[in-house]
Simulated assay, not measured.
Amino acid sequence: MLMSKDNQGMVFIVDISGYSQFIRKIDPTEGLTIIRRLLNGIIESNHLSFRISEIEGDAILFYRMGGPPSIAAILGQFTRMRKAFKKVLQLYRPELPEVGQLELKAIAHYGHMEEFKIDRFSKLYGNILVDAHRLLKNSIPSDAYVLLSMDYLEQMEEFPLDYTTSCGTYQCDIYDVGSLCYRYFPFDGKDIPKDLSYHNQKKRSKINLSEELVI
């Protein structure tokens, strides 16, 4: 199946960190209830109107066709989802301290993909899906972050193409297909990462970043 140049879109995978250890330590019935509520909270916080392709145990594969949202919009979306996630965890923390090991991370990637139907289900096809799942296996020293792939970032007018100006932390990992590079924003203990800055922020004075990051 050939890819059309028009079939471009974003994949946004939101994944629960610490999931495997959590389900080993907790009663299955109770664990299922907590994970269901956490996933529901994430979905209900989807204010960018992403579509859902799959729910994969501890992860939700969101996507949207067409041009990607801005960096600030993506970070704002994740902030909103993480806030809903933390709100659910607070309900269980007094009696189940194990929930304290759970965190949230996200991968944003952009490229060519196709939508197709199997029965009544919508599915996605393309290397973008394979690479997005590869990027989940990264060396980021954090359990709470947003990873923005270079393929996504290069679509952004505000992104510094020389890779030298502060815009998250630049990093590469080696996979079976070679090196995949990205920038990431850690959210450890934060609602909004401190290092949100752009190469040409002054040129974008008409854009109110604080509004884009409203949660």
Rank of each mutant, 00 (worst) to 15 (best):
A72Q: 07
S149C: 03
V177H: 10
K190V: 02
N208C: 12
G66R: 07
I174D: 14
I174Y: 06
T165A: 09
L209G: 00
Y145S: 00
R37K: 15
K86L: 12
E30A: 14
I43L: 14
R24Q: 15
L75S: 08
K137G: 01
R134T: 03
P69L: 07
L129T: 12
D191C: 00
N40L: 11
C181G: 11
M65G: 11
F121G: 03
S20K: 01
L61K: 08
I207K: 11
Q21V: 09
E30G: 07
G100E: 14
T165L: 03
E114Q: 11
C167D: 09
R64P: 01
P186G: 01
M113S: 11
E56T: 14
G66H: 06
R37F: 07
F121I: 14
D176A: 10
T29V: 10
L136I: 15
I71Q: 00
P28V: 12
R204A: 11
I26C: 13
I26L: 10
V11S: 04
G76R: 00
G126M: 07
P97R: 04
S149E: 01
L96R: 11
Y110M: 05
P94H: 07
S139H: 14
D151I: 00
G18D: 04
P94T: 08
I174L: 12
I215W: 08
A84M: 12
D119S: 05
F62W: 00
D27L: 02
L148C: 15
D6C: 06
A108V: 09
E98K: 05
K86I: 03
P186T: 08
R93S: 14
Q171W: 08
Y19Q: 09
E157C: 03
S197Y: 01
K202M: 09
G9K: 08
L75C: 09
S179D: 12
Y184C: 10
G100A: 01
I16M: 13
E114T: 14
L89F: 03
Q21P: 02
P97D: 06
C172I: 04
L61D: 02
A144Q: 15
D176K: 13
M10C: 05
M150E: 15
L213S: 08
S122T: 15
N138D: 07
V14Y: 01
L48V: 13
